[in-house]
Simulated scan of single mutants.
Amino acid sequence: MPIVRDPLNPRLSMWHFLAFYLRFCREKANLSLTQCGEIMGVQRGTVSNFEAGRRRPQEDHMRALDKHYGTGWLFQLLLWFARMAHDPNWGKHLVKYEQETTLIKAYHGQVIPLALQTDEYTWAYVQAGTPKDFEAEMAERVARKNSFFSRGTEVEMWATIDESVLAREVGGSEVQKAQLEHLLAMADLPQVSLRIVPFKSGAHLGVDGSLQILSLGGRDIAYSGAQNGGRLIEMPGEVRELSVKFDRIGAKAASLEDSREIIKRYLESYE
């Protein structure tokens, strides 16, 4: 059967353009997928995924192509621009990376991290948003939560949240109470490390917004939250900067045990 490729629009994003150009250059050079894979040091199927936009190449792949085609820095520059430009499909790729990661480091200053939410808490935020289909949005978020816990201890989460998240009543008192109870239960899981940045810690870098660092085998990628979406970051230097920022926020956080006590204190207000 012929290979069926997802349609690519090189005008949609730099990632689509890069995938389109990879295939264009390979076919112009009369190279098979297998031959191109030998040049890049990957399997035939990986090249196919690069050209279909299903997977993203790395620096060493682009360096090998530049050397083979004699294109100087062209492919490496295209990769750089793709990583720096806005990607309308960032959400789809973030979900894919979440399914592959072995460690999630997450900071949130406005909301409890999705993986640690009750369904009722999640639904309250879905209804507060502006999706065209609330049910579809809810199903997508629940699927993301389930993908985390279905892997058990294979994936860890180091979550840091601001105390203001605990103070904000979401979905009513019963929903918030159940969420705080759930948060304590999640904190007892061996794969979850949960710390709270208390109000008394003062100013910290978390004021700039939420962030995630995802460990994927030999490399890390990052996600920076923002209004009307977010930004997926794959440039190693920028990922390291966000990782340092996460650590500096964590330096302001309470210990694991003290964080549990802070959650319990808020839970007592609902008794």
Rank of each mutant, 00 (worst) to 15 (best):
M157F: 01
V47N: 13
V126R: 07
E234N: 06
E169S: 11
L77T: 13
M186H: 08
L74M: 10
K200N: 08
E174W: 06
R26N: 11
M1D: 03
E38V: 04
T153I: 06
P88N: 07
I221N: 05
C25W: 02
L8Q: 10
D208M: 11
D6Y: 02
Y69V: 00
M138H: 11
A251I: 00
L65W: 00
S210M: 14
D60M: 03
E140H: 15
L183Q: 03
P88T: 07
D133F: 11
S215M: 09
E59K: 11
N228E: 00
V95Y: 07
L267S: 10
L18D: 11
S224E: 05
A226W: 01
E241T: 02
E59Q: 03
D87G: 07
M138Q: 13
R23T: 10
F20V: 09
L31G: 13
V207H: 05
M14C: 02
D247R: 02
Q76M: 02
E163R: 01
L216V: 03
N49K: 14
T102H: 14
L77D: 09
E181S: 09
F17A: 04
Y125S: 01
V197T: 10
K200E: 05
R219Q: 08
S215G: 12
L22V: 10
R26T: 03
E137W: 07
E241S: 09
V239F: 12
S255F: 04
H61T: 02
F50C: 07
K177F: 04
K28F: 04
Q117P: 12
M138R: 15
Y21T: 05
E169I: 11
